[in-house]
Design a protein around this nucleic acid. Sequence first.
DNA 1: ATTTTAACCCGAAACGTTTCGGATGTCAAT
DNA 2: ATTGACATCCGAAACGTTTCGGGTTAAAAT
Lengths: 340, 340
Amino acid sequence: MPTIKDIATMTGFSVTTVSRALNDYNDVNAQTKKKIEDAAEKIGYVPNILAQNLVMKKSKTIGILVNELKRESSKDGLMLEMLCGVSDVLADSDYEFVLLSTSTAKQKNKTFKQLCEERQLAGLIIQGLKNDDPYLEEIVDSNVPCVLIDILITNETTKYVTSNQIESIKDAIKYLHRLGHCAIAYMNGSDGAHVSTIRKQGYLEALKEIGLPAHENYIMNGQFDEDIAKKVAMPFLLNHPEVTAVFCASDVMAIGVLSAAKDLSIKVPEKLSVIGFDNIVLSRYSTPPLTTISQSPYNMAAAGTELLTAMIEKKQEKTPFKILNSELIIRESTTFQGSV
Amino acid sequence: MPTIKDIATMTGFSVTTVSRALNDYNDVNAQTKKKIEDAAEKIGYVPNILAQNLVMKKSKTIGILVNELKRESSKDGLMLEMLCGVSDVLADSDYEFVLLSTSTAKQKNKTFKQLCEERQLAGLIIQGLKNDDPYLEEIVDSNVPCVLIDILITNETTKYVTSNQIESIKDAIKYLHRLGHCAIAYMNGSDGAHVSTIRKQGYLEALKEIGLPAHENYIMNGQFDEDIAKKVAMPFLLNHPEVTAVFCASDVMAIGVLSAAKDLSIKVPEKLSVIGFDNIVLSRYSTPPLTTISQSPYNMAAAGTELLTAMIEKKQEKTPFKILNSELIIRESTTFQGSV
DNA sequence: ATTTTAACCCGAAACGTTTCGGATGTCAAT
DNA sequence: ATTGACATCCGAAACGTTTCGGGTTAAAAT
């Protein structure tokens, strides 16, 4: 409620001087500044961010754009971990963040540019976009600073953060191979998702490197969904008794596979080794606990936020991207082939 | 980038008329309106929300205030479910939401009133505040519309949503009693939390109603934390072999108890029945799957959002609160006392 | 022919800031 | 006495809207 104008009349200085005093300009007398600050404190002045942003033509608000905020995503805690990462990094800056969830329906009404302009967003962190998302092109074309999660595009105003997924996946597959597994199936996520492409690539490269043939029909698609993965895995496991290990592009799907195996009385890990991806909370508690690959969404989001604020403040960082470590976490869903 | 002024010069009408046309005032000619709308469409005009809010002295932004956005809260998906609830309800309105996380440190710098004023928040949904939180008083005193989750306070601008936890807890305890359990312990959450008080009350009332004595030392405190709950439960279970069931104020703590029992080789449910609260994703996957009480944070948030927007738009709702149903979900962590 | 009414339109102020381009005064150097 | 430099301050415009209080015109009522 109290404005800069109130402080001006209180202290007898002009609005200009009050503003300059409060913003630490150096052409205002120390005493004056003190008086103004005291007055501001006294009446509990807080700057009206709206007015500030309006006149400065830019805000300190960064948007977190997610493809669709859907309830199932609470199964893995990934989304929330990301939020925490952003939140923590931004905690003692003067940036704020808004959560923006798009859907194809919404995109019809509002272009990406419009989305940014209406709130004068300073920048965005973007996660979970499909390869063919119409926003993607707009994002790279726009001059709004953006950080993409797991989508490897860079230009003047676009950077990304990802993790060395491919390496970790290769590690995982090679680990299975060392355990004696030679028929390793792969459960992929939805085709559109960028991470699906990447992870599949990791799987295929690993097979090549260890000299195992890549059977196209060893690749299933579970749409990143537990139930779908289970439905897909059931007939697959029945028809492919030679398969002794399956690597999944997400823990959620791996849990689906676990469930399918249980229904078919296939013992995990004795008869079937299963590896997931994400290291979600659940993976520690499933039976058996999942061997999985951990990439910390918290750290990715935190790194992305730092990349973004640096970009906004025109601090040129050396690299237009950040690659974090992901690592294989061995638990109890994997063991030697034929270990019975 | 394009403004109302651009449309004005394009079409030859005044800024006033353009504004009125775009806002569906009825004193503008149908043709004029059409022309203006076409022009707006053509140049991809989006209103500058900042400017709108500034002049109207209020925004369409609602804040979601959480006590502390901490990483562990991704363990239960509660926070995210709430966000989804809010997000879905707000999806096709013109409201937006920002996530605000406070901490005692931040509260020193900014009063609740200031928090609202700087962004001209239209209203808040408030969750997870401790009983002694300094903001609480400010919230009830302020004239900013607020909806409290699980804190039962109402006045002109304060409403709440909760669920019939007490009833459900009574159901749970009575269910245990029917199974033959007579020594039922209780694992409470952190003392400050309002829900702790409520849930404890439910436990005590249930004991009274079925005529069981309330031993003060049957009440533990696990701070809503898995590890702490485990640490507290270990000695308790050792010292109280007569206890055959423990009811926990959260699933996370119940899982801690499960883990304690496992370490002590106390079979659940044969030797010990355990009930949780929240029906988090994990509870379905723990071993054994947890009997628990489900209150949907999604629905609570959704209901709260509706309550809030109604309040903001001065639509007087009949009730200053909403009470949702919570219910006992029986899974495999409970069974007859002495069922071996 | 005058007044009333309605439909349609617009100028200008307001919201709370920031910032450009001076203005004023003081003091030391010339 | 003039100049220059510096420190300190301020007026006014600008940001993009909304809205109050009118104004103009043409048709309808007197």
